[in-house]
């Protein structure tokens, strides 16, 4: 009985010590990961700046006209079409994306 008590007490003590050690170890791990997180966030921000600078309309226009030899579309080369829900839908080819969109614009009870 006495021995058992001593063993139990020792086990509890060891458990306590193990727990404390583990807390400290994980604490250090957390700190390392935090440092890593900060570094990664910093890298993300740097890349964000780079991306933003590279996609600026001024640069895109410069590259498009200077490097790639593109020109702005002439009048009449771009035609914008206003899609009204009552516009005739494509027939006989099964529903297309266009039909689905148009149907959704209609109130439920009008859809056949």
């Amino acid at each position: 009985m006495k021995t058992l008590t001593v063993i139990a007490a020792m086990a509890l003590l060891l458990l306590y010590v193990w727990e404390r050690v583990e807390i400290v170890r994980i604490g250090y791990q957390v700190e390392r990961l935090k440092v890593k997180k900060v570094a990664l966030e910093r890298e993300r921000d740097e890349l964000q700046v780079k991306l933003s600078a590279l996609t600026s309309p001024e640069r895109i226009a410069r590259v498009a006209t200077g490097k790639l030899g593109l020109v702005p579309p002439e009048r009449g080369q771009v035609i914008l079409v206003d899609l009204k829900p009552e516009a005739p839908a494509h027939r006989g080819r099964g529903p297309t994306m266009l039909d689905v969109k148009l149907a959704r614009n209609e109130p439920m009870w009008k859809v056949p």
Binding site: P72, E74, R75, G76, Q77, I79, L80, D82
Partner: peptide, 19 residues
């Protein structure tokens, strides 16, 4: 002209195609 095209505002008059 450029802003309307960018915003997708369709023109109100028939446009001559430049094909």
């Amino acid at each position: 002209e450029q802003a309307l095209q960018y915003l997708g505002v369709s023109s109100q008059e028939p446009v001559k195609l430049a094909m």
